[in-house]
Structures are given as structure tokens and as C-alpha cells.
Simulated scan of single mutants.
Amino acid sequence: MKDLDISLNDLKQLTKWVKESGDIRELSLSCNGLDFFISRNENTNRDVTSQAPVAPMPAPVASSSSSQEKIEVKDSVSVPIESPAAPACEVTVGENEVLIKAPMVGTFYKSPKPGAPAFVEVGQQVSPKSIVCIIEVMKLMNNLEAKVDGRIKEIYVEDQQPVEFGQPIMLIEKV
């Protein structure tokens, strides 16, 4: 297969496409000397050879979800990718409330740096451009904004906790 120029966002989109597709169970591609294999079947064990050095990956997050997917790299760890259909907890959202969900798999940070005050606390007023947290993905910090005028009603995630795609993070009561 011919090597492709592909970004992390492209890989995320491909993974999402495979997850949502009813017909595709596996996808294999080569990019800049790295071979990628995405599978919807948790029992699929396929080694993928990498000719470039592989950076250490974080330890897998344990989950009771039966709809896990895995990305495997030879001589490295197998990292489960949670299905967006299975968020970590169920949250009831009222008519005048907005639920902020994790837009990606990553690590939740409540403050801009260790020891700094949290972006928001329960009961705090927020505006649409207020930063409420950071989700770190592969050393990239992604600010999440409130997107509404309101008050923080609940925070469901602890600082430095891993989050899954679609996992509830905060509940904002609109004002």
C-alpha cells in the first residue's frame, strides 16, 4: 500500500467512521512508515509492525464496556478505545441545563497548571467563552468552553482523571 500523509484528526475521523459503520469491522493503513490497524472486534489480535520508534503509551484504562476496540502496535501496549455509545455514567439533563461531554479521549485537568486555581468550581457563574477545563491528548492541551451563560451545577470528573469520548464532564444550569 502507498504511504499516506495523515494527521491525528484524520485518524480520529477514521476510527469514528469504523465505530459507526455497520459494515466495516477492520481497517488497515500505512502512513509514513507506520502501519495502523483499527478493529471493531475486541477479540481481534493482529500485530502491526512499526519501522519508526514507538513512543511509550499510557497504561490502558480498565472498563466494563463490552464494546471496546483496540489499537495494537507490535512490541508496545494495547490501548482500549472506548465506544462513544457507552459513557462512564448516566446523567439526567433538565430542560434548563447543558451537559458538557468530553469531545475526545484524554486526560481531564481542572486548572491551567499544577497548583493553580481551578478554572471553575460548583456554583460559579460562567459565560459562553469561559474556559471550564482542559483535555490533554498526546501532549496537546484542548480548552473546553462553557458555550452558554449559566452556573456550574455539577462536575463529574476528578482532576487528572482519564476521560472517554462522550463522557459527561460538567452540568451547567442556564441563566
Score class of each variant (00 low, 15 high):
residue 32 N to G: 07
residue 33 G to T: 01
residue 33 G to C: 02
residue 34 L to E: 12
residue 35 D to W: 12
residue 35 D to E: 08
residue 35 D to M: 07
residue 35 D to T: 08
residue 35 D to L: 03
residue 36 F to H: 04
residue 36 F to S: 00
residue 38 I to S: 02
residue 39 S to C: 00
residue 40 R to G: 00
residue 41 N to I: 13
residue 42 E to M: 13
residue 43 N to S: 12
residue 43 N to A: 12
residue 44 T to G: 03
residue 44 T to N: 12
residue 45 N to C: 02
residue 51 Q to V: 11
residue 51 Q to F: 15
residue 52 A to M: 08
residue 54 V to H: 09
residue 56 P to W: 10
residue 59 A to M: 08
residue 59 A to V: 07
residue 64 S to E: 12
residue 68 Q to N: 10
residue 68 Q to H: 11
residue 69 E to F: 15
residue 70 K to A: 06
residue 71 I to K: 09
residue 73 V to H: 11
residue 74 K to A: 08
residue 74 K to S: 06
residue 74 K to T: 02
residue 77 V to R: 14
residue 81 I to L: 13
residue 81 I to Y: 14
residue 81 I to D: 02
residue 82 E to M: 13
residue 83 S to G: 01
residue 83 S to D: 02
residue 87 P to L: 02
residue 87 P to I: 03
residue 87 P to R: 06
residue 88 A to P: 05
residue 89 C to P: 05
residue 89 C to K: 15
residue 92 T to A: 09
residue 95 E to G: 04
residue 96 N to F: 14
residue 96 N to R: 15
residue 97 E to M: 04
residue 97 E to V: 03
residue 98 V to P: 01
residue 99 L to W: 12
residue 100 I to L: 10
residue 102 A to L: 08
residue 103 P to D: 07
residue 105 V to H: 08
residue 106 G to Q: 01
residue 106 G to L: 01
residue 109 Y to F: 14
residue 111 S to G: 07
residue 112 P to M: 07
residue 114 P to V: 12
residue 116 A to S: 11
residue 116 A to K: 14
residue 117 P to L: 05
residue 118 A to N: 13
residue 119 F to E: 00
residue 120 V to N: 03
residue 122 V to N: 07
residue 123 G to E: 00
residue 124 Q to F: 13
residue 125 Q to F: 14
residue 126 V to Y: 11
residue 127 S to A: 09
residue 128 P to W: 13
residue 131 I to Q: 08
residue 131 I to D: 04
residue 132 V to H: 11
residue 133 C to V: 02
residue 135 I to D: 01
residue 137 V to K: 08
residue 138 M to A: 06
residue 140 L to D: 03
residue 142 N to M: 11
residue 143 N to Q: 05
residue 144 L to S: 03
residue 145 E to D: 05
residue 145 E to K: 05
residue 146 A to K: 06
residue 146 A to S: 05
residue 146 A to W: 09
residue 147 K to A: 09
residue 147 K to E: 09
residue 149 D to T: 15
residue 151 R to T: 15
residue 152 I to A: 06
residue 153 K to P: 01
residue 153 K to F: 10
residue 159 D to Y: 14
residue 159 D to T: 11
residue 159 D to R: 12
residue 160 Q to K: 15
residue 162 P to H: 13
residue 163 V to G: 02
residue 163 V to Y: 10
residue 164 E to H: 10
residue 164 E to M: 07
residue 165 F to Q: 00
residue 165 F to C: 00
residue 167 Q to K: 11
residue 169 I to S: 00
